[in-house]
């Protein structure tokens, strides 16, 4: 009697588990078909004029931050930076980065606002990332964004120069920054 009841319950459970597995498989198949249809018929809007939705923006940005954290573990940051490194870093920044990232009181190039994601101002990036993390961002770039990897075309010393400048940037006033730009290129007095 008891054994029969047990067998019945076990059979019931197997039936339920089977139905559940079939349900999961069905959802998987439908999801897969929807995913493929999205790719095949261009259902996802990849135009840059239409910004990422909140979920996509959050997921991309946090994936980037956590990926950088994970990959910067074995980069040993220097204990500090010299004024010469900051100066060299500014020179490189003005040539390679300012059009996308702007500066204190200075806008980015006009076309940059149409990149998606749009490049952030990096004035306080050094508060959000350690020097080792900034080094990894510069060396390896950011996938699915306009941020290039610079490790291929810049020496390790040059990569650290950018970091030195980014570390100094939060303490550079708009007036000082304007003077630095003017000293580098007198034509750049005004934006």
């Amino acid at each position: 009697m008891l054994a029969a009841a047990r067998a019945y319950v076990a059979a019931r459970w197997r039936g339920l588990a089977g139905a559940f597995a079939a349900g999961v498989a069905a959802v998987g198949v439908v999801g897969g078909v929807l995913g493929l249809a999205t790719v095949a018929f261009g259902l996802y809007d990849t135009t840059a004029t239409n910004p990422h939705g909140r979920v996509a923006a959050w997921a991309l940005h946090h994936t980037f931050i956590n990926s950088v954290r994970r990959r910067s573990g074995d980069v040993a940051g220097p204990p500090g930076f010299t004024a010469a490194q900051v100066a060299a870093g500014f020179d490189q920044y003005a040539a390679d980065c300012a059009m996308c990232h702007g500066g204190p009181g200075v806008d980015r190039a006009r076309w940059v606002r149409q990149l998606e994601p749009s490049p952030p101002f990096v004035i306080d990036s050094a508060r959000q990332f350690t020097p080792a993390q900034l080094f990894v961002i510069l060396r390896d770039g950011v996938k699915m964004s306009a941020m290039p990897a610079w490790g291929e075309t810049r020496t390790t010393a040059e990569l650290w120069n950018y970091v030195a400048f980014l570390e100094a940037l939060p303490r550079i006033s708009p007036a000082e920054y304007a003077a630095m730009r003017h000293a580098r290129d007198p034509a750049e007095r005004e934006h």
Partner: peptide, 17 residues
């Protein structure tokens, strides 16, 4: 506001990043 990078200098409630 999203496109102009305002959020890299300002906290903006309800705007990711």
């Amino acid at each position: 506001t999203e496109r102009m990078g305002c959020g890299s200098c300002h906290i903006i409630p309800g705007m990711e990043n």
